[in-house]
Computed example of a mutant assay.
Amino acid sequence: MTDLSLKVGVYRYEHTEPMFDGRVPIDGVDATLVTSPLISDVFCEMAKRELDIAEFGLTYFLRTFDLDDSPFLALPIFPNRNFRHSALFVNVDSGIEKPEDLAGKTVGEFALWGSDPGVWMKGVLAEDHQVTPDQISWVIGGTDHPIPAFDWIPQPVPGGVEVRHTEGGETLGAMLEDGEIDALLSVDVPQALIDGSPKIRRLFPDYRSTEQDYYRRTGIFPMMHAVAIRRELVGEPGLVRSVYRAFSRAKDLVQQQYRAGAAKQHMSVITPWFSGLFSDNRALLGEDWWPYGVDANRKAVDTFLRYHHEQGLSKRLLTSDDIFVPALLDT
């Protein structure tokens, strides 16, 4: 039987590297793996149907899912996840001392209104702090480099929410430092903060403790991206299971390297005291701290889907059963 020739797009993370270097093939697939320094470029290629299987930001996937001819389904593979309380930055003169102070302010958001970290944090702000998106004026753009509006993906904005895009050479990081916006919700840390600017700080200074407490309360480790597949490929015998198995094996290889490294205090890692952090994370998050599959991620995914709908980004309230390929609902 001839292997399927497919183009697969994914960022070159440490937990996908085994697929790039050949240690983990996708059985039954002659796969051409492609990547990009900007993961949004992979999203764009997938949105334009130039890839067969690809890492896709959850909101980008869901926006295509609302089309009449929705072209993709999701696989329960989550290459990118991150706690996002650390993604909120404020100008020190803005008067913002706590999350509730964001109401009535102007806040920048990286890339698009309803970015993946944006959906998560708007949901958290609404649930935990009673601050809803319509109470804020939003400015969309690049953090340290100007970026145009993404015209290759739908851009829904609900009524009653004020949103504008940056113009010309404006960047959100500079606007935050200058006080033109009060706060910033960004996947990228503003360069000014990295450089030690006294004008910017995080809204949650002890964000690690805040995010750990969030996990203890909710059991949610927020995912940003899943892997999408073109609908016409879903029926190929054994394909979705083979893709899921390959991504899982690659991730498991890397997790096992970290487990084994603990015996030697992670000598291969150049970060001091990393073993202590690894031990703390393992105690909190468990042996499989980066889980794939529907069952282990259903609560987190369904929470994101609810937030996406509440924020006017999905036409209807979806659940995990709606978006994942049926053959992998048992994972």
Score class of each variant (00 low, 15 high):
Tyr13Asp: 03
Glu14Leu: 10
Asp21Leu: 03
Ile26Tyr: 03
Asp27Pro: 11
Val29Thr: 06
Leu33His: 05
Pro37Asn: 03
Ser40His: 05
Lys48His: 14
Glu50Asp: 15
Glu50His: 10
Asp52Cys: 06
Ile53His: 02
Asp66Lys: 04
Leu67Val: 02
Pro76Ser: 08
Asn80Ile: 10
Arg81Ala: 07
Arg84Phe: 15
Ser86Arg: 10
Ala87Trp: 09
Leu88Gln: 07
Phe89Pro: 06
Val92Trp: 13
Ile96Arg: 01
Glu97His: 15
Glu100Cys: 12
Ala103Lys: 14
Phe110Lys: 04
Gly114Lys: 00
Trp120Asp: 12
Trp120Met: 11
Trp120Ile: 05
Val131Leu: 00
Val131Gln: 03
Pro133Cys: 06
Trp138Leu: 03
Gly142Gln: 14
Gly142Asp: 11
His145Ala: 12
Pro146Trp: 11
Ala149Leu: 08
Gly159Leu: 13
Glu162Pro: 11
Glu167Ala: 15
Glu170Ser: 06
Gly179Glu: 04
Asp182Glu: 01
Ser186Pro: 11
Val187Met: 14
Leu193Arg: 14
Gly196Ala: 07
Phe204Met: 00
Tyr207Glu: 00
Tyr215His: 11
Arg216Gln: 07
Arg216Pro: 12
Met223Val: 10
Met224Lys: 06
Ala226Tyr: 10
Ala226Phe: 09
Ile229Leu: 02
Pro237Ser: 00
Ser242Asp: 05
Ser242Phe: 10
Val243His: 06
Tyr244Thr: 10
Ala246Met: 09
Ala250Ile: 02
Lys251Arg: 11
Asp252Glu: 01
Arg259Met: 15
Ala260Asp: 14
Lys264His: 09
Leu277Asp: 04
Phe278Lys: 12
Ser279Asn: 08
Asp280Asn: 11
Arg282Met: 12
Leu284Ile: 06
Trp290Met: 05
Ala296Thr: 01
Ala300Trp: 15
Ala300Arg: 11
Ala300Leu: 09
Ala300Met: 15
Thr303Ser: 01
Leu305Ala: 01
Arg306His: 14
Tyr307Phe: 14
Tyr307Ser: 02
His308Phe: 07
His309Lys: 13
Leu313Thr: 00
Lys315Arg: 11
Arg316Met: 11
Leu318Gly: 15
Leu318Ala: 15
Ser320Tyr: 08
Ser320Asn: 13
Ser320Pro: 14
Ser320Val: 09
Asp322Thr: 02
Phe324Leu: 15
Leu329Pro: 05
